[in-house]
């Protein structure tokens, strides 16, 4: 569905994207995970056709570059900034963006209704956006990307600043989109989102991939060992182990254990191991 080859983009002295290459398959959620300023949004903007790459190639659905309007017809973008008209109602926003995509008449009405239902905002469709909560705005932002029924969705940090309920609703939306066969490129700096949603994750920093694989394989390759922490009457012991269960059995045989905790490696550990620092946020 999407082929990106050797993409480069520089802003002045800053190399925002430095040789990114990846493919996204139909029905796949592909995560771009990285700290702020890593180059995720720049990458998304180039794939969306908003920015021109200094070099490299992007091909959407075999149709060509997103600089062509006909190719952009296949792409839906939910930008990180809530790029919507606050003075218009939810429905008016969707109708407007649907019209820009060439929809009209019954098709437009049906698509607007479907997206409003999909993001659970049908009951607020006649309210102006300025009366919406942060989570509702994020959901209508997603709806605006979906209204013209694109097979490729670019979701740039879609859960920034939303409450847990709205975040869960958005997760469900994204998983539902995957089940409909859409390809989703999902940028985030929240590890648990990437772990929960993405089939494959590219860990990106300074505009380049540090690793790119499925979540399990990333953890296996870069997560390191599990950490077993044991509390006894007189001491606390922390042991790194490739086989934490065997290690727990061994520790129990050595003496009485007050408490025991096993920290398996996760995506955050992968990221920290790869970048050597904490998330920048």
């Amino acid at each position: 569905m999407l082929q990106v080859e050797n993409l480069y983009k520089r802003f002045g002295t800053i190399q925002a994207v430095a040789g990114l290459s990846f493919n996204a398959r139909q029905g796949e959620i592909l995560g771009l995970l990285g700290p702020n300023g890593a180059g995720k949004s720049t990458c998304i903007n180039m794939v969306a056709g908003l920015l021109h790459a200094d070099s490299g190639q992007i091909n959407v659905g075999g149709l060509g570059s997103p600089s062509l309007p006909a190719v952009r017809q296949k792409i839906g973008v939910a930008p990180q900034a809530l790029a919507l008209y606050e003075g218009l109602t939810g429905e008016e926003n969707l109708r407007f963006f649907g019209k820009l995509a060439g929809l009209s008449g019954k098709v437009l009405r049906d698509r607007v209704s479907w997206t409003l239902e999909f993001v659970l905002l049908m009951d607020r469709k006649d309210d102006r956006l300025k009366t919406y909560s942060g989570g509702m705005k994020r959901r209508i932002n997603l709806a605006a990307a979906l209204v013209h029924d694109p097979p490729l969705l670019l979701l740039d940090e879609p859960t920034v600043g939303v409450d847990p309920q709205s975040r869960n609703a958005l997760f469900e939306n994204v998983l539902a989109l995957k089940s409909q066969g859409r390809t989703v490129i999902y940028t985030t700096h929240y590890m648990e989102e990437a772990e929960k949603l993405c089939d494959r994750v590219g860990i990106i920093d300074h505009g380049a991939f540090l690793a790119f694989d499925s979540v399990d394989k990333l953890i296996e390759s870069h997560g390191g060992k599990s950490m077993v922490t044991v509390m006894r009457h007189d001491s606390q012991v922390q042991i790194e182990s490739d086989d934490p269960i065997a290690e727990c059995v061994r520790l129990q045989q050595e003496g009485e254990i007050l408490s025991l905790r096993v920290d398996r490696p996760d995506l955050e550990r992968v990221f920290l191991n790869l970048t050597g620092r904490a998330m920048r946020d």
Binding site: A48, P69, R72, Q73, P79, A81, A83, L84, L100, A144
Partner: peptide, 14 residues
């Protein structure tokens, strides 16, 4: 400044 112009630019229009 609000980003809607970017959204217009990524729509399938010139």
């Amino acid at each position: 400044t609000t980003g809607t112009l970017s959204r217009l630019l990524v729509a399938p229009i010139s």
